[in-house]
Design a protein around this nucleic acid. Structure first.
Lengths: 232, 232
DNA sequence: GCTTGTCTTTGATTTATATCAAAAATCACA
DNA sequence: TGTGATTTTTGATATAAATCAAAGACAAGC
């Protein structure tokens, strides 16, 4: 009995491309790791030797400038595959946000899998295509949206992508990352993020005082804001 | 004698995945089109039925907000493949910048090609991976760079990617797009782009008065600026 | 070769967000 | 449970880039 066979998130990841009878190959190709918060998974510019499949928690992906300015390009959560690159080195860094579980594939094993299972490659293409569409959406946000629109877009995206109904509360949005991370993701400063969240609370669009979670009171107004419709 | 066999840019595009003897299949799967400047290739949100391979000229890809704000997410030139999406509709628009030649694939033909030629899919994965890396670099630009750094990055990227040494002039950069397009690509206004280019000229980092081309005098200073090293 | 419209540049002013500063809340750990 | 460190919030001020405005340069068509 190997772990891929009992993996609960298999159908949320590229691993669903592999049939049950071949799962043992997958299990042997990868190694499961559990990582504490703020662990470096990928060092920007280092040799691209490993690939990761996130099975629990959230990973932040980012690029930096020499003087320390940083742009988080995405948050990778359950099911996300990380590390693909055409160059021999990673063009981005990756760090855990909270406690994270990943399956790590080393390059030779991954290449064997890709060669042996065309459906695996097909799934990877679909995943990268999806990530590209998300990146384009984020470019629109970074280049053309106001601070209020950016924060609204962020909260909305998390509400839609991450239905954390486990608490029973309706429209609850969990924010495991710090304000610094949110600011670096939205191209703002922490002060602006904080002020904007406070303003949305004041306007009764969201509620909740917990720093790492809010509740959306008016999804429709949030949606309006996120798409730049108004200032309401 | 079909056109793919004599195609001069085949090895710059995904088509290099297809062997010479199978090229006739490729030629039959696609249709060559010649398009004047400012032609809409892809309407944002329309059904994704066609895919394009650019064989000459430059295409701009963009996303818009309801009130008309626009973000150009990339310029696709020779060899670029356009139109992939997981949803049934395009999440972005595409318009020609100058006179453009494309080979158009309709969805069923493309799917047949993908199924029959795994190397074709492999090439596509590499191309999308590359585009994602570029998108991440652009997110860093949009979220964290100053106007001066953005313009420097843009000019530098075009100098490196598009060596237009045909004119004989060293380090010549061609800018077929308008200031509006450059501004919408860099997340700035046309006035800021214009002022910044003038400032770089004043600082003897670039030269040339032609609106659609400049010459880089100091690639090293431009590189420094683009990576945020200084203000020189 | 002139005229008309478009694109680009330059200038003056405004503004959204950054920066600087400090208080309040939360967290970690003894 | 208390204490110091960290994170978040709020406030005052500064600033880079946007906006508003107009002049110059260029391109296309007659």
């Amino acid at each position: 009995m190997h772990r891929c066979l009992v993996c609960e998130i298999r159908d949320q990841s590229v691993c669903r491309a592999i049939d049950d009878e071949d799962l043992v190959v997958l299990a042997k190709s990868s190694k499961q790791l559990s990582l504490p918060p703020n662990t470096t998974l990928i060092e920007e510019g280092s040799a691209a030797t490993a690939f990761f499949n996130v099975t629990a928690g959230t990973v932040k992906l980012f690029k930096s400038l020499p003087d320390g300015r940083r742009q988080i390009t995405g948050f990778a959560d359950v099911g996300h595959f990380l590390g693909l690159t055409n160059a021999g080195t990673y063009s981005f860094g990756a760090e855990t946000v909270d406690t994270v579980q990943v399956c790590r594939f080393m390059r030779p094993q991954l290449e064997t899998l890709l060669a042996d299972y065309p459906q695996f490659e097909r799934r990877l293409l679909a995943e990268v295509t999806d990530e590209l569409a998300e990146a384009q959406e984020q470019m629109l946000l970074l280049g053309r949206k106001t601070a209020r629109e950016r924060v609204a877009s962020f909260l909305l995206a998390r509400m839609i992508h991450r239905p954390c109904q486990t608490t029973g509360e309706e429209n609850r949005v969990s924010l495991p990352m710090t304000r610094v991370d949110i600011a670096d993701y939205l191209g703002l400063t922490i002060e602006t993020v904080s002020r904007t969240i406070s303003a949305l609370r004041r306007d009764h669009i969201i509620t909740g005082t917990d720093h790492h979670g809010i509740r959306v009171l008016s999804p429709s107004r949030l949606r309006g804001l996120a798409s730049g419709q108004e200032n309401a």
